[in-house]
C-alpha cells in the first residue's frame, strides 16, 4: 500500500501570536515550528500503523521552503520512509493543494491523508481541494481508518454524530482524533531520519485564489466579575439581565 501523508508546519501551540508590517504579516520572531498536530498524531501515525501491518510505503509531502526541512525531518524520525518538498511558500490552500495534486497525479497512491485542519489558518481546505483536483472520493474528518485490499472502512464525524462508511481506494481522507495515538520519535528514528531521501521539487506556476490582506487581535477582556459561590442566584440574574445570554 502506498500512502501519501500531507504535512504542514504550524507554530508551537504556546507561541505568542503577533503581527508585523502594519498587521499584514505573522511575526515569526521567536516562533518554534512543529508538525501540525492533526497531520502528525493522526494522519502520519495511522499511515505508519497500516504500513507496519500490511507493508507498503509512507511518503510525506509538504509545500514550503528549505526552512521547513526541520519539520520534515521530524516526520521522518517518527517513521515515514521518504519525503517530498515542493519548493515554494504555501501562499494559500488552493496553491498548496494544487501543487500536491500535481505531484501525486499518476503516482499510484492508494491513500492520501491529511490532518483535519492546521492549527494556524484552520481552513480545513487542502484535503477537499486535493480530492477534487485528483477526481477522488473524499472522507472528511475521519476518526477511524481501516484498509483491506482496496476497501477502506472509516468512521467520520457528521453534524451531531458519527458515521461508518466504506469507500474504494484511491481516496483522500482528512484525519482527526480517535484514529491513532501520538508517537514520540526515538533516537534511532532521529538518526535514521537524517539519511532518508528528501526530494525537492520545483513548483508549477500557479496563482493563489485568496490572500490574507491583514490581521487583528481580539479586544482584551475587561477584568472578571467575581461572584460569591453561595449566591448563584446573582450569577443567573447577571447572565439574564446584564450579559443577556440566558
Amino acid at each position: 500500500m502506498n500512502i501519501l501523508v500531507c504535512i504542514s508546519k504550524a507554530p508551537d501551540t504556546t507561541s505568542k501570536i503577533a503581527f508585523t508590517n502594519g498587521d499584514t504579516q505573522f511575526d515569526e520572531n521567536g516562533v518554534q515550528y512543529i508538525v501540525n498536530p492533526y497531520d502528525e498524531w493522526y494522519a502520519l501515525v495511522r499511515a505508519l500503523e497500516l504500513k507496519e501491518a500490511q507493508g507498503g510505503n509512507v511518503t510525506i509531502i509538504t509545500v514550503g521552503s528549505a526552512a521547513d526541512d526541520a519539520v520534515i525531518r521530524k516526520a521522518l524520525a517518527i517513521g515515514a520512509d521518504d519525503a517530498v518538498r515542493i519548493d515554494a511558500p504555501a501562499t494559500d490552500a488552493y496553491f498548496t493543494a494544487m501543487q500536491i495534486a500535481e505531484y501525486a497525479k499518476g503516482k499510484g497512491f492508494d491513500l492520501i491523508l491529511t490532518g483535519k485542519e492546521t492549527i494556524d489558518y484552520n481552513g480545513s481546505q487542502v484535503a477537499g481541494m486535493l480530492a477534487e483536483a485528483l477526481e477522488l472520493p473524499f472522507v472528511s474528518v475521519a476518526t477511524k481508518l481501516d484498509v483491506a485490499g482496496s476497501t477502506v472502512k472509516a468512521e467520520r464525524e457528521i453534524v451531531g454524530g458519527v458515521q461508518e462508511v466504506e469507500v474504494a481506494t484511491p481516496v483522500v481522507i482528512s484525519c482527526a482524533k480517535g484514529m491513532a495515538e501520538q508517537r514520540i520519535p526515538n533516537m534511532r528514528g532521529i538518526m535514521a531520519a537524517r539519511t532518508k531521501p528528501l526530494t525537492v521539487v520545483a513548483p508549477t506556476a500557479l496563482d493563489a485564489l485568496t490572500t490574507y490582506a491583514s490581521y487583528s487581535m481580539p479586544a482584551a477582556k475587561s477584568s472578571v466579575k467575581l461572584i460569591d459561590p453561595n449566591n448563584l442566584d446573582e450569577l443567573v440574574t447577571l447572565l439574564h439581565n446584564e450579559a443577556k445570554v440566558i
Partner: peptide, 10 residues
C-alpha cells in the same frame, strides 16, 4: 486564525 487567538481578513 491561530485557532481563535487572532483574526485574519481574507
Amino acid at each position: 486564525v491561530f485557532s481563535g487567538k487572532a483574526f485574519g481578513y481574507v
